[in-house]
């Protein structure tokens, strides 16, 4: 069964069509990279998966549960879908450790000891255990994004969404974040990643989705996307020639 299933998802802001009949499936363990020019609807698309972006038409199912259905417990669904944001969005008034334990305790009802143990193990994994007592503002951008990934993982998600996780980082901090993401992908995490990091896509993506003007223009295996550009749509070829030029 597909972990994420989108069927004919459309969204309008007034007359402007942000998403236009988007249909795709993400199987368990898939790593799907979503790319395309800015304003093409990439972020909006992945935010429909955890209900952060409502849509007017179509259906999104996560692990069989419909996101937009009236009876859906959206907070429960969201707790099973991890999300990493462009601007990290750590909670600045909480320590790194509390950033990782807040939702574990409040949403999953884990005990403080259990949540702390989980948080410290995840911080260890992203190489930041010694920063647990600090506040987010005291960390570098790359460190903050690694904490944000650990925060999302602390909820034991079945899917991870990444919304341009490296676009706000200084260049020398990009790789430390990508390394963590590559590790996750290799462990079999189901991931949807909006990114311009084509190196990451080549390394671990199973499929690449290319979007333009709210539409999914390409939805193909990685090798087809990078290996056979002549078979791609003109818009995708144009995009590829720009991002792969250097």
């Amino acid at each position: 069964m597909a972990m994420i299933e989108m069927r004919g998802v459309s969204k309008w802001f007034g007359d402007f069509r942000v998403l236009d009949g988007c249909t795709t499936r993400v199987e368990k363990g898939d790593v799907v990279v979503v790319c395309g020019p800015s304003g093409s609807g990439k972020s909006t698309l992945i935010k429909t998966v955890n209900g952060l972006e409502p849509f007017q038409e179509g259906e999104v199912r996560v692990d069989g549960v419909s996101v937009a259905a009236r009876g859906t417990d959206l907070t429960r669904l969201r707790s099973r879908v991890g999300m990493v944001f462009q601007h990290f969005e750590l909670f600045p008034h909480l320590t790194v450790l509390r950033n990782l334990t807040l939702a574990q305790e409040r949403v999953l009802r884990r005990s403080r000891a259990e949540a702390d143990a989980k948080a410290l193990a995840l911080l260890e994994r992203v190489g930041l255990r010694d920063q647990a007592a600090k506040h987010p503002g005291q960390l570098s951008g790359g460190q903050q994004q690694r904490v944000a990934i650990a925060r999302a993982l602390s909820m034991d998600p079945v899917v991870m969404l990444f919304d341009e996780p490296t676009s706000a980082l200084d260049p020398e901090m990009v790789s430390e974040v990508l390394d963590v993401m590559v590790g996750l992908a290799r462990e079999g995490m189901t991931m949807m990643v909006v990114t311009h990091e084509m190196g990451f896509a080549r390394q671990v993506a199973s499929r690449v989705i290319f979007m333009d003007q709210g539409r999914i223009v390409e939805d193909v295996a990685k090798d087809a996307f990078f290996g056979a550009p002549q078979e791609r749509s003109p818009r995708a070829q144009q995009f590829l020639s720009k991002v792969l030029a250097h």
Binding site: N50, L52, T75, R78, S79, G82, M83, E89, H93, R106
Partner: peptide, 26 residues
């Protein structure tokens, strides 16, 4: 930032919990 509200929702906090633990403290 709007993302703070989104981040609170994304980890599964209810609106009330988001206000209590994330938005109002800041």
């Amino acid at each position: 930032p709007r993302g703070q509200r989104e981040a609170a929702a994304a980890v599964g906090l209810t609106t009330a919990q988001a206000y209590r633990h994330v938005l109002l403290p800041m």
